[in-house]
Design a protein around this nucleic acid. Structure first.
Lengths: 341, 341
DNA sequence: CTGTTAGCGCGTTCAC
DNA sequence: GTGAACGCGCTAACAG
């Protein structure tokens, strides 16, 4: 039988409340008494039953999620995962509030964080934008003792306690290694399409890709980056131009969203030299393109995992418990058409 | 405030025990009373607090894990993960019993399962061997109402309620797609090293690989499979012979364990034509070989995830709750030296 | 058939 | 400083 507070109280010859005080490090216990109780606790290897604790405290974890109202498939999926977690949360004492803010709007995000802090939640999760407004707001949350985890896009050095997302530089390097090996020894140019290099995760992927390709595959030259703002129409126009202007093009790395446009342009292409294409995020569109052979590899981050991880981390932080690090590492999923889930 | 059993009792004008009986579908309630209570439950949208339930029942989930006593890195890691889960389990009401059996010994495994059933655990997890003894034993467990999940290697059609492992055929196809694209258009032969095709997961990887390569990459021919029994020494000798005998060898797929031997043979090789190598399971040895460029890709299954997943599934099964399917899908991790964790 | 009562392991008033 | 008593949401003996 696992030891309980009763056992401790009996063995130490004190009452339950004294044990409780020692356990929670509260004042009102003389040093010798405290030591005696503490010794018994250590000796018994006592561990609190978190379920009983929460029951007694009537604790509910209030978590606020702030995400952009972006219309692309990935953000839709992210919001859907949060909504699902909200449903499940009921039976796990977590109450999730979902707040959406305009995309790419740092000021709006900063304000949303501030007003979330006002409501005094047990934790805040947000898709960060690397900007002063956001940094300042995160600092405020931290000073208010509210743990913050960043989701998808990080904000290092801001006081956020955790990042639930992939290592984007590694993702870029991985894309470079794959496309480089696919085009082993061949000569030609590789196009890069981003949403905006102003966004941190895109920037990191870009840096990782250029670095990896430059280092290991000198026969491939990268073309100047194209910024599609994650908008399918724009991406389509830019990709079409890219294909037309560069007859020596043999590879494309699309590191942002709006891949519907990319896929349309690829499908419309006259059968020319073979083209190796790597894109990010598994959506209905990219999945189909992968199956059709228009895209060779999709790098993906699992939105569901990110949301569940953020919740676990915030809960643990809220009551000062450690987390299982390996469980919270978000993988860079690599999908070929052969290992689609 | 979330409704509780008290609210239901009050509103329905009955006692707590009646509510409890209705909630748990127990007999001893007249139909009209039952209906009245049920209506209130539905109307209130009542959901039981699982923590309180477990507390009141004093429930502890006893789970038995049966794994081979294999000495390779992967099985060691698996056992380590189970041990860690056992530590954590204390505070989550799960008590894990770890049983080891001789590797590749179906009879021993069958006996271990039978005696595990005797102890009446809430669930059993095991690394299956596709064999009659094992099948029969699993049936017995199932008839005893004890849920069984297979770990790493599956046993379809045996009544196991879940498989915590990767899709091995997809893994084989993925290896084929990668090595095929790496060697794009080139002509030559590809060697395959297995542990034993008698083991289901190895067989599936083998089938997937041959199928994928044959379908998409006709310029590559596969050499007859080599069985290294997952023993480093044997794998070493066989690989060395493979390298010596086939000057046109341009790729190797090692789908089993014992990769220390493979790596040694690769390292000792005279610099000849470049060789693309794909192996399974990320261990200290394969990780180093990846960094050194001796191996190009490692396909991996996350032992920690498999263990945690098995526990979650068995717990949910034990009290008839559903699981989050996406969370329990074990990914085929693809590691290049650029995205190592 | 139905209701009462006493816990599960812990936190939290209050008195002493 | 310390302790007794009650309650969190639910189940499990018992009575009736």
């Amino acid at each position: 039988m696992k030891p309980t507070v009763h056992d401790i109280a009996n063995l130490a010859g004190v009452s339950l409340s004294t044990v409780d005080r020692v356990l929670n490090g509260r004042a009102g216990v003389r040093a010798p008494t405290r030591k005696r109780v503490q010794d018994i606790i250590d000796q018994l290897g006592f561990v609190r039953d978190p379920a009983a604790v929460n029951l007694a405290k009537g604790r509910v974890y209030t978590l606020t999620f702030i995400v952009p109202s972006n219309d692309n498939s990935f953000m839709q999926a992210l919001r859907a995962e949060i909504a699902e977690a909200r449903e499940r949360g009921a039976s796990e004492r977590v109450q999730i509030v979902l707040v959406t803010v305009p995309a790419f709007d740092a000021e709006a995000l900063g304000l949303a964080i501030r007003s979330a802090v006002e409501t005094g939640p047990d934790g805040i999760a947000l898709v960060a934008i690397d900007d002063g407004h956001v940094r300042a707001a995160v600092s405020i949350a931290q000073e208010a003792g509210i743990p913050v985890v960043t989701l998808v896009s990080d904000l290092p050095g801001s006081g956020r306690c955790h990042f639930a997302g992939i290592d984007n530089e590694a993702a870029g390097r991985t894309a470079a290694a794959l496309i480089g090996r696919f085009l082993d020894g061949r000569e030609g140019s590789v196009g890069i399409i981003a949403g905006s290099l102003g966004v941190r995760d895109h920037r990191e992927r870009y840096d990782g890709f250029r670095q990896g390709l430059g280092r290991d595959f000198p026969t491939l030259t990268t073309l100047p980056v194209i910024e599609g703002l994650d908008e399918p129409e724009r991406v389509h126009a830019l990709t079409a131009r890219l294909l037309a202007d560069h007859p020596d093009l043999i590879g494309i790395y699309s590191l942002g969203a709006g891949n519907r446009g990319l896929i349309r342009a690829l499908a419309a292409r006259e059968a020319g030299n073979p083209l190796r294409v790597i894109a990010h995020e598994l959506t209905p569109h990219t999945r189909q393109a992968l199956a059709d052979g228009l895209i060779d590899v999709i790098l993906n981050q699992d939105a569901g995992h990110e949301v569940r991880s953020a919740i676990r981390v915030l809960k643990s932080r809220a009551d000062g418990q450690p987390v299982i690090a390996a469980q919270e590492r978000i993988r860079i999923d690599i999908f070929l058409k052969d290992n689609l889930p």
